[in-house]
Design a protein around this nucleic acid. Structure first.
Length: 605
DNA sequence: CATCCACTGTTGCTCTTTTC
DNA sequence: GAAAAGAGCAACAGTGGATG
């Protein structure tokens, strides 16, 4: 990396101060143009590069304004007469710095008046004018150049890491952009002027620092200023040819005012550096911050003076690398932040979508489950209702049958009928006892039908013909397995048929007014088997007085007595035998029935 | 008014440093 | 080590003041 800033001027040898001559305005002179000399000189190559838009050297026919302006008093003379207590303003005024009456300011006006655009004969455009030296740099030009240097050299985005041409190209751009004098300054001119300004200001800074180090007693800031001026003026330099150049006073305080507070420029203000003509030594010194810190610390022990340079160590301006790094970092952080935000946003959106989907699925599932539960519950209720309905119907039939069985008038029954009735009654009683015992043991009513059917079926299977018909009844409410009981073995049925029970007896059964359904079912089965076995004629069957639910229509024209008689006639020869048996069994049944009635009374009680 | 001198701007050259 | 670039120096030219 190279720095376009010039270093510290070579060490001048101290010599006796020689009075310098400053412009004397005692007489005005017209400017003489000697372009011919420049054109003949091979070194004047720069003359050909200035084109339209620039201010050229003063025309030969014009008198320079500077020559008609009263110049300021002789600076050298003024310096000699300047009191030691002169303050800055007084000195600046005396030196013509910052004053409209000063020589330096007058030169500024001179240039403004001197430089004009030259146009061609037709006046259509600016043509290349005769080249001459541009006017002297004014205070404003110097200040502008210093400010330009600060701006360009401190730009962290570019810094000093650029070629000389690039750097001074930017310097020229900045300078031209703010240059109100109208004088076009070439890059080379700016470089040369800056070299002078920088060198002079560095020497001046070193002189002031030396005075601060001396810290003479009994002096105020003005005294120190004058001492610094004397030190500066005593500095002389010797050219390569051995020519000694006499010192002069510092004439660029306006530039120093601009530069003194800049950290980058102040790095080179050590007076000792003035004695280092060797660039290598200068480079080493500039890189050695510790020594500068030591010097600052020594200065820090003294009380500061208004005009003294602050030796505190302020923050160094950011450099090019730091600026680029921070920009890159900022950009990277922004990119990373944006990417992270996008990821977080996308993730949040995905979570929301999934959450909504889950909510929807869960709601639908809940609704479906609820509907299923409701459907199952309704099904269960329906089944329960049907079961209850069947159970109620079965119970109703059973009660009706029992009611019929026990309250039937058996006075007209023959022996067989009585036996059947008695057996049926006993069976019912057995069932009821068992049921009561079961209920007493905690069994439900559901067991009644099973026991009843099963029991009857089982009994039906016992080989009793008549009971076989009863088994069919029991199987009515029994499950299909128990229905097997209904279908009593054909042998048993045949046996029943073999009884050839008198038709009047059956007719009497039907005449009891039993429930049509019960009797129909019972009668149907009984009569189907019975009639098949008996082979009785339809007329006889019709005489039985079967209930309306009978499969065949039987007119109810016969009385009970007639029915018994017809049944007896049908039975024929066997009626006597049957009658005898009925009498025997009836006696026994009466005894049993009386006993049963007593038992029932006891249970009811 | 002509000339001399000093100053300033400009530019080429040289030295030093840095980079490849 | 060579090349490139920066910085300083010196010379030159232009300008203005002083002086005879």
């Amino acid at each position: 990396m190279t720095t376009p800033t010039s270093g510290v001027a070579p060490a001048p040898s101290r010599a006796t101060a020689a009075p310098s001559k400053l412009p004397n305005a005692s007489e005005a002179k017209k400017r003489k143009i000697s372009a011919k000399k420049k054109a003949a000189d091979g070194s004047g190559t720069s003359k050909k590069k200035k084109l339209a838009g620039r201010r050229t050297a003063p025309a030969s026919t014009e008198a320079p304004a500077s020559s008609i302006v009263e110049p300021a008093a002789d600076a050298h003379h003024v310096l000699d007469e300047m009191p030691t207590s002169l303050n800055d303003d007084a000195y600046m005024s005396t030196m013509g710095v910052g004053s409209n009456n000063s020589h330096w300011s007058q030169t500024n006006e001179t240039h403004l008046d001197d430089h004009e655009f030259e146009v061609d004969e037709e006046g259509e455009g600016i043509v290349e004018a005769p080249k001459g030296r541009a006017g002297n740099y004014t205070i404003n030009d110097d200040k502008l150049l210093c400010n330009t240097w600060l701006q360009v050299s401190r730009d962290p985005s570019v810094g000093g890491d650029q070629s000389r041409d690039a750097y001074w190209g930017r310097m020229k751009e900045h300078f031209d952009a703010q240059n109100m004098s109208g004088i076009d300054r070439s890059e080379r001119s700016l470089r040369s002027r800056w070299s002078t300004i920088n060198s002079e200001c560095q020497k001046w800074a070193a002189a002031q620092k030396a005075v601060d180090k001396l810290n003479p007693s009994g002096t105020n800031e003005d005294d120190r200023y004058n001492i610094a001026q004397n030190l500066f003026r005593e500095e002389t330099r010797t050219t390569k040819k051995g020519k000694i150049k006499k010192g002069k006073i510092f004439t660029l305080p306006h530039c120093y005012e601009v530069l003194k507070d800049d950290e980058k420029w102040r790095k080179r203000e050590d007076l000792d550096d003035l004695h280092l003509s060797n660039k290598r030594k200068r480079t080493i010194e500039l890189n050695d911050d510790d020594e500068e810190d030591d010097a600052s610390s020594e200065d820090g022990k003294r009380s500061p003076t208004p005009n003294s340079v602050s030796y505190s160590k302020p923050k160094r301006p950011d450099g090019c690398k730091k600026d680029k790094t921070e920009k890159k970092k900022r950009k990277g952080d922004d990119d990373l932040t944006n990417a992270m935000e996008a990821i977080v946003k996308a993730r949040k959106e995905a979570i929301e979508v999934r959450k909504m989907a889950r909510n929807q699925d869960a709601a639908a599932e809940e609704r479906r489950l609820a509907a299923e539960e409701r459907r199952v519950a309704a099904e269960e209720r329906k089944v329960a209702l049907e079961e209850r309905k069947v159970a109620m119907e079965e119970r109703t039939r059973l009660l009706e049958w029992e009611k019929y069985l026990f309250f039937v008038d058996t006075s007209l029954f023959n022996e067989a009928q009585m036996e059947y009735v008695n057996l049926a009654r006993q069976e019912v009683l057995i069932q009821k006892r068992a049921m009561i015992n079961t209920m007493g043991s905690g069994m439900g009513g559901g067991g009644l039908g099973g026991m009843g059917g099963g029991g009857l079926g089982g009994m039906g299977g016992m080989g009793l013909g008549i009971i076989g018909g009863l088994g069919g009844f029991g199987g009515m409410g029994a499950p299909p397995a128990a229905m097997g009981g209904m279908g009593a073995p054909p042998a048993a049925m045949g046996g029943m048929g073999g009884f050839r029970a008198p038709s009047n007896a059956m007719g009497a059964m039907g005449g009891f007014g039993a429930p049509s359904n019960v009797m129909g079912g019972m009668g149907g089965m009984s009569f189907a088997s019975l009639m098949g076995g008996m082979g009785a004629p339809p007329v006889a069957m019709g005489g039985m007085g079967a209930p309306p639910a009978m499969p065949f229509d039987v007119p109810h024209t016969h009385t009970r007595a007639n029915a018994v008689e017809e049944l007896a006639k049908t039975v024929g020869a066997t009626s006597d035998a049957v009658r005898d048996e009925e009498e025997d069994s009836s006696a026994e049944e009466e005894e049993e029935s009386s006993a049963e009635e007593e038992e029932e009374d006891e249970q009811d009680g």
